[in-house]
Write a protein that binds this DNA or RNA. Structure first.
Length: 414
RNA sequence: GUGGGUGUCGUCAAGUGGCCUAAGACCCUGGGUUGUGGCUCCAGUAUACGUGAGUUCGAAUCUCACCACCCACCCCA
C-alpha cells in the first residue's frame, strides 16, 4: 500500500463542499473590492524565492521543495506573493493603469514538521495591490480580509497591526535593540541566542520567562520609525478607525519573510492551538525592484484555507451541504433500464439533478438509495409501466405516488 | 532538528497474560406474502489487534526496536 506523503491531505467529498463555499465567499468579496484573479505556476526558479523572500529566512533555508531538472533549480512555491510579483514584472503589468489588484487561490509547499493547522502542502487565498504607496491601499487590503472573515462567520478573531518601518529605520532599531539586549546575552535561551543576530525582534515574543523578563523595557520599533513611516502608521490607524475595524497595535509582530516594510498585520484566532495566525500580510515596497522590476510599492496578505476551515469548525459555522439528487430513476430489468437512461438524460437536460441505479439492485434497495441521496422524486419503471408508457412518480417527501405518462414527467417534477 | 502522546474491523469502541479462532454499536449488503425509502425486526460480509523481534507453556495484553499519525518547540498561512 502506498500512502500519501506526510503533510498532505486528501480533500474528500465530505469536505470539498466546504472548500467550494469558502472559495465562493472569497471570490465574491474580491469581486466587490475590484480584485481580479491571477494564476501563476506551481513552481518557479529557485532564485525568485531566494531573492524575494530572503536568503536568510527559515522558509528559504530549510523549508523549500527544490528540485533540479535540465540543470535548472526549480522550487514549488512556498507562498503566493513572489510568483505574482514575478508575473507582474514579466508581463509588464506595471504598464497598465495602476493600482493593479490581484487575488489568487493556490496550494503552497513547505517542508515542515506537521502540526495542527500546518501541512506540507497547504492552500492560501491571497491578494496583492501594486502601485499604491499610501495607506489607503493597506486599509483596503485589511478591510477585505476583515470582511471576508466576518462574512464567513468567523468569531473572536483579533487584528494585530504593527509597523516594521523601512530598511533605514529598521536598521537603527535593530541596532538599538541589540544594544539593549547585549548585556544579558548569556542569559537568553538557546533559540534566542541564535535569534540575536538573525532576527532580534523575535526575542521580544519568546515564550521563555527569562527572555520575557530580559526583553522587558526594550525599545519599541514604533519609537524608532522615521517621520515618513510614523506618519504612515498613524494614517493606517486613522483609516481603520474610519472603517470601524477594531485592531490592536502589537509591536511583537515580525513577519518572517524579508520583503515586508512598514505595515505588518495578522488576524489571529484563539481557536487554532499553536498556529493561531489565520491571515498574515503587510506592505512590501522594495520587493518589485528587488526582483528586477521598476520600483513599485505593494501590499497584500496570505490567508491559510485549512486554518480558516479549522476556525469555522470551532466557531460552529454551518456550511450548507450541496444537495445530491432531485430525481432518482428506479428501473427494474434491462428494458426498463434502457428507458430509464433516456429519462435521466432528458431530465438532466432540463438542468435537474437526476440519478439512476448503477448497481442492478432490487426495488427496495433502490428506494433506500434514493432516500439516502435525498431525492425529492423517484420514478419507478418496470415492465408494467414500460408497456403502458408511464412511470410511477413517487414524491418522497409527501410519500405520495401517481402514474404519469413519459411525456409529462418533466412538467410534473418541475 | 528537539520533545511528548497515541496505534484493535470502513468508523467509534470493549478488552491490561490463558474460555479472544476479539464484545458491542454505527456503516455496508440482503431479507421480513413474489415491485416501493426514512422507523422497526432478522440475517450476512470482513486479510482488525501498526510492523518486526523477544519474554512466556501461552501475548491484543509484558519488553525492545522500527514505522505511522497527532500535539508542542522552532517557524509560518
Amino acid at each position: 500500500m502506498i500512502n500519501m506523503p506526510k503533510g498532505t491531505k486528501d480533500i474528500l467529498p465530505e469536505e470539498s463542499y466546504k472548500w467550494h463555499w469558502v472559495e465562493g465567499k472569497f471570490r465574491n468579496v474580491c469581486a466587490r473590492y475590484g480584485f481580479k484573479e491571477i494564476r501563476t505556476p506551481m513552481f518557479e526558479h529557485t532564485e525568485l524565492f531566494q531573492r524575494g523572500i530572503g536568503d536568510t529566512t527559515d522558509v528559504v533555508q530549510k523549508e523549500m521543495y527544490t528540485f533540479e531538472i535540465a540543470e535548472r533549480s526549480l522550487t514549488l512555491k512556498p507562498e503566493g506573493t513572489a510568483g505574482v510579483v514575478r508575473s507582474f514584472i514579466e508581463n509588464k503589468l506595471y504598464a497598465n493603469p495602476l493600482p493593479a489588484k490581484y487575488y489568487y487561490v493556490t496550494p503552497c509547499f513547505r517542508y515542515e514538521k506537521m502540526q495542527k493547522g500546518r501541512q506540507r502542502q497547504f492552500h492560501q487565498f491571497g491578494i496583492e495591490v501594486f502601485g499604491a504607496s499610501g495607506m489607503l491601499a493597506d486599509s483596503e487590503v485589511i478591510s477585505l480580509a476583515y470582511d471576508f472573515l466576518t462574512e464567513c462567520g468567523v468569531e473572536g478573531f483579533v487584528l494585530h497591526i504593527n509597523s516594521i518601518g523601512c530598511p533605514e529605520c529598521r536598521a537603527k532599531y535593530r541596532e538599538a535593540l541589540q544594544e539593549f539586549l547585549r548585556p544579558r546575552y548569556d542569559e537568553l535561551c538557546d533559540t534566542c541566542k541564535s535569534r540575536f543576530e538573525r532576527n532580534p525582534m523575535r526575542i521580544l515574543d519568546c515564550k521563555s520567562p527569562i527572555c520575557k523578563e530580559i526583553g522587558h523595557g526594550a525599545p519599541h520599533m514604533l519609537d524608532f520609525l522615521c517621520d515618513d513611516c510614523k506618519a504612515a502608521f498613524e494614517e493606517l490607524k486613522a483609516n481603520l478607525d474610519a472603517l470601524d475595524i477594531p485592531y490592536e497595535v502589537d509591536p511583537g509582530i515580525v513577519r518572517g519573510l524579508d520583503y515586508y516594510t512598514k505595515t505588518a498585520f495578522e488576524f489571529v484566532s484563539d481557536k487554532l492551538g499553536a498556529q493561531s495566525t489565520v491571515c498574515g500580510g503587510g506592505r512590501y515596497d522594495n520587493l518589485v525592484s528587488e526582483v528586477g522590476g521598476p520600483a513599485t510599492p505593494g501590499v497584500g496578505f496570505g490567508l491559510g484555507i485549512e486554518r480558516l476551515l479549522l476556525v469555522l469548525e470551532a466557531c460552529g459555522v454551518e456550511i450548507p451541504k450541496e444537495s445530491d439528487t432531485d430525481v432518482f430513476v428506479a428501473a427494474l430489468g434491462s428494458a426498463a433500464q434502457l428507458k430509464g437512461l433516456e429519462l435521466v438524460k432528458a431530465i438532466r437536460k432540463e438542468g435537474i439533478r437526476a440519478d439512476i441505479d448503477l448497481m442492478g439492485r432490487g426495488l427496495k434497495a433502490q428506494m433506500k438509495n434514493a432516500d439516502r441521496l435525498g431525492a425529492s422524486y423517484v420514478l419507478v419503471l418496470g415492465d408494467d409501466e414500460l408497456a403502458k408508457g408511464v412511470v410511477q412518480l413517487r414524491n418522497m417527501k409527501a410519500s405520495e405516488q401517481k402514474e404519469v405518462p413519459f411525456a409529462e414527467i418533466i412538467n410534473e417534477i418541475k
